[in-house]
Amino acid sequence: MKGALLSTDGLGVRYGSFTALSEVSLSIGANTIHSVIGPNGAGKTTLFHALTGRVRPSAGRIDFNGHDITALTDDRRVRRGLARSFQVTSLFHRLSVRENLRLAAQGRTPWQALKMWQPAERNQDATAIADSILERLELTRVAGRSAEELSHGQQRRLEVGMAMASRPLLILLDEPTSGMGIDDIATMKRLIADLGRDHTVLFIEHNMGIVMDISDRVTVMQSGRKLVEGAPGEIRDNPEVRRAYLGSMMTGGRA
């Protein structure tokens, strides 16, 4: 597809004799918000791992921004402009919020962090990025606290911020609303929609309300394969999808 930032072709992942993912071809347009949904065990997480470089695909290829990145390790993909968040919050719990973001910003140019003589605080580029993200996430007030002291909702936002800090072209979010209360979900929804203005976003989500409201495209997965793909409206009305989900979940609200 023209204008695709990320595309996969016949992507497959096998663990021993178990096929977790097969023949997945995706195309994520630049500056779109694309969501991946599907019942548990559909292969969403495996797809995510293959895209981030955590898992080496056993078949197919991944192209990103005009380059074949299939063989790149996860840290190298970050340098190409691909960043991720985790489903289970994964922060540097004992470091301050600002330091978490400064490190994430530094991760885009990791070799510069080998400078053993440069005090971390004098690393102004990364600190400036961290401060701007703090503002965007409305976390400036708690910037000096350690990450473990934040509320769950704040931690989830910081989790997304960690992905933003490397100034990526594409942000991959793994169930960003996982474990959130209703108020926090609304904030997160605004945040993701806002991210879509200046990034390409690909996210896995169970909350159909968010998926249907803010996605440009939705891919439905089942049994390790792509079932259908389309605009939210088409997906909502697709009989196959309704069957896969046994009906109930498509009305929105929490899964």
Binding site: V78, A83, H93, L95, L103, P110, S166
Partner: peptide
Amino acid sequence: AIRYNGERAQAIGFP
């Protein structure tokens, strides 16, 4: 950062 969370350090781009 690596000591506290090596997985995350790798994911934000550090080799």
